[in-house]
Structure formats: C-alpha cells, structure tokens
Design a protein around this nucleic acid. Structure first.
Lengths: 233, 233
DNA sequence: CTGCTTCTTTGTGCATCCGCAAACAACTTG
DNA sequence: CAAGTTGTTTGCGGATGCACAAAGAAGCAG
C-alpha cells in the first residue's frame, strides 16, 4: 500500500495549489492509499473516526440512515475533496457512510495527524474552513429548496448540480460521469424513486434529458435551468 | 458605546471558558457593544460583512429570503453564540438577516480582527470549527427530517429543541423564553402557518402544550418526545 | 374606550405527492 | 442461455398539506 500516485495529479487539487513542493511531498509521504471498488465503503456510519481522506480518483456518496431505516444521500464526493474529517470537528465517530459508486482511490491519514497537517500549511486550515463553510451553505440551500419548492424544481436543481460537478460533454449532451440510480436522486431531493422516475420520463419526452439504467444525459441545460429558476406555475 | 459588560457573564460562555483572564480582557477591549430592540436587525442578507458578533443577552433569529420572496428561519441564536462570521469562511457578504426577537445585546468586532482573534487563543479557532460543525450537523438533521418525516413529527422536534435551548421551567410547564409565532415555527419546519396552527391546537386538546399569542408552553415533554421518536403511524 | 394592526383559529376544496402493486428491462452469474 | 438480481416504468387510490377565505382574539396608540 505504498504510494505511487503521480504528484502532478494531486497538485491540480485546489487544496494543494499554493503549497510548496516540499510540503506536498511531506504530506504525501505520510499518506496511505486506499482503493475501493463500487459498493465498498471507506468508512461506516457510527464507526470510530480513525482516518481522514482525500479522494484522488472515482466517486463516492456519503449517506446517513435514520433510526427507522430510511436512507438519505448527504453529498457526493468528487476527486480533490476531503472527506471523513469528522474528528477535526471533535466528533469521535463518522456521522455517515462513504460508499464508492465507481472504482475509487483515496489517500488516508490517521486523525492524529490533523494538527500536523494544519501546521505544515495554514492553507490547509483555510481550505478546510472553506470546505466546511461551503457544505454548510449547500445544506442551507437544500433546506430552503425542500421548504419552499415543489419536487420537480428540486430534481431539476439536483440534476443541474450533478451535471456541473460531474458532467462530461459528449456529442451535444452532457453525461453524468458515474452510475446513478433514480433512487439516488430521490434520496438527494427528499422524494421517492417513483416520483423521480415519473419526472425524468416526462423530461425525456420533452427532450430535456436522456436516461438509461444508472445513466443520465442532460440534453438541454438551458431549459432545465429555466425550469429550476421559474417562479411557481 | 463603550463596554460596560460584566466580565463574569461573558466568562460563563463556552467560548471563553478556557481562556486566560488577560486574553479575555484583551478581546473585550476590542469589542463594541451593540443593542437591538425587538424587530431591529444586526445585519441584513446580502450586506457587506464588516463585523462578526457574539450574543450576550436576548434572542435572535437568522432568516433567509429566497428569490421568489419566501422566507425561512435558518436558526435561532442564543446568548453565548457567535454569529455573522461569514467572512471567516471567506464570504464577502452576510448570507442571512439577523433580527432581534427580544431586546438584545451583542458584542461586535470588525472582521479584520478575526485572524488576531484566532492568534490570541487557539481555543477560539477550535471553538469556531466546533460551532460550525455543529451547525452543519444540525442542518443535516433538518434535511433528514424534512426528507423522511411527516410534518407533525418535525414540528414536535422543533418544539422540543426550542424547549431545550430556550426553555424556562415554570410551574410544571416549560416556557419558551422568547416571543415566537406559529409563522416562525412554520418557517423552521418547512410547512405553513396553517398546518402548524392546526397541529398545536390538536396538541393543546391533548394537554401536550399550551399556547397563546407569541407564547408557547410545553406541558408534557415525555409524550411530545414519544411523538417525535415514534415510528410512523 | 375605540379603532387599528398583528397574530391566531378554523373551515372547505383541491392539487400534489406518496404508497402499493405489478410488469418490464437490463445486467450478472453460473 | 437460463435464472436471479437489480433497476425502471406505470397506474391508481388515498392521504397530506396547501391556498383561499373569513372571522375572532389580543395587544397598542391615541
């Protein structure tokens, strides 16, 4: 499990952008790489938070399960993102489960190293604060949407966000670049699989999107955007 | 507007708990106190984030208004809480509006002082990270509730949270210690004033709560709790 | 006290969204 | 290729919560 990651890949991630070469190398030398194929988890909800991670390649979803067994998707993790640093916020355990949805590779560090991580470069601290600030804002946006908007607009927002974060242009369409189910989208928008299926079918009829099993293409960002923005009715 | 706050009051707030006397005094000497009577705002959504604050006395609600004019309550601020430190997360403007709901007093510092604030005591940085981590968690809880639970349980949770955070025992009842309207509760739970009114009326019939104009007493925490916890149906 | 404003209660119809159920399609495994 | 697994579609009935409306109650100013 020694490190054989190309440094230039890591360099492109915003967190390391402004760091000195020596510092990057030092941090990388402390990291252990971990691989997970689709369906495997990096950590489980409630487990002791022994490590924090950075995703190098692939895609994860972070989920939470409620007391009565319902699941929601908290967020999707993209390459370059830090994840599982619950402990930095003084939590002893992971608040969610991080499951790989496509072949993934991550770096991991023991949580004890977090302070050292910060010492090595203040940028990391700033970066962490920014990251978590963004997440908070994202969460508030989601709350606002769920409070005030009807399902169709929420789904539109979610799909647009996915297209922006994980979209791959491909012959006039944008391909969502990892396997995603209607169930997943339902768990991200707070509705049911059935409703999502209905909405996507309707959109497909209007040429807005194209779908398949665990696949999704966005054909018309513009009209989807106007759906997401439009005043009600 | 010079400072005449009793240091012992401030000392009781968790943020200052572990700080040296000299440091507390230094920070307080840089602060400017600001007062707001009910309805006045400390800052407005979208305004330039020139200051950050700590609430000493009173109660605030932080609200956001959506593009189409709908309002939601993001959170309630209690004495001892930091608020308005958007800038620390590198935002140039306030993401919400902080309105006083009862006569309030807060300390304020110019945002430029934030780094100095952190230097003076690492506890502040830790405290800030914790605070924001808690808020994130709270937001996720709210998202989870809104995704999976029906309205009555969400209202139950909200009322219980209010009772814990701002409850005042009073003759076998617990009084929510600041003026709160059904509209406010609706905006906290993502429903309408009407539905909240109906639910509270029903509860009042069962002796769970007692209400009045901008008043709310919780009579039976236990049964309310079981309502909030119970499996559906 | 009187009128005004703000907050609350209550009722009725109606659109939305969910739950259940069943069939179908795609991919996987042996 | 047959059987099993997993994901998707669709229909229908019904509950939930919303919009609209109107009136009552409580506080406030003059």
């Amino acid at each position: 499990m020694t490190l054989k990651i190309d440094k230039s890949v890591v360099r492109s991630f915003s967190m390391f952008e402004k760091m000195a070469d020596a510092d990057v190398e030092h941090l990388l030398s402390l990291a252990v790489s971990r691989r997970a194929s689709a369906g495997e988890a990096f950590f489980e909800q409630g487990g002791a938070a022994t490590h924090f991670f950075m995703l190098i390649h692939g895609r994860l979803k972070v989920t939470q399960v409620t007391a009565d067994g319902q699941q929601i998707i908290v967020r999707v993790v993209h390459p370059g993102d830090l994840f599982g640093f619950a402990r930095a916020l003084r939590r002893p355990d992971y608040p969610g489960t991080a499951v790989s949805v496509s072949e993934s590779l991550a770096l991991s560090w023991p949580t004890e190293l977090w302070p050292q991580f910060i010492d090595r470069s203040p940028h990391v601290a700033v970066s962490a604060l920014n990251t978590i600030g963004e997440r908070l804002e994202e969460a508030h946006t989601r709350i606002r949407e769920m409070s005030t908007q009807e399902v169709e607009r929420r789904v539109a927002h979610t799909v647009l966000r996915l297209a922006r974060q994980a979209g791959n242009p491909e012959a006039s369409k944008i391909r969502i670049d990892f396997p995603i189910t209607r169930q997943d989208i339902a768990e991200m928008t707070g509705t049911t699989l059935h409703t999502v299926s209905r909405i996507l079918s309707a959109w497909e009829g209007q040429g807005l999107v194209e779908g398949g099993r665990q696949k999704l293409f966005v054909c018309d960002m513009k009209r989807l955007q106007s759906l997401a923005d439009s005043e009600k009715h």
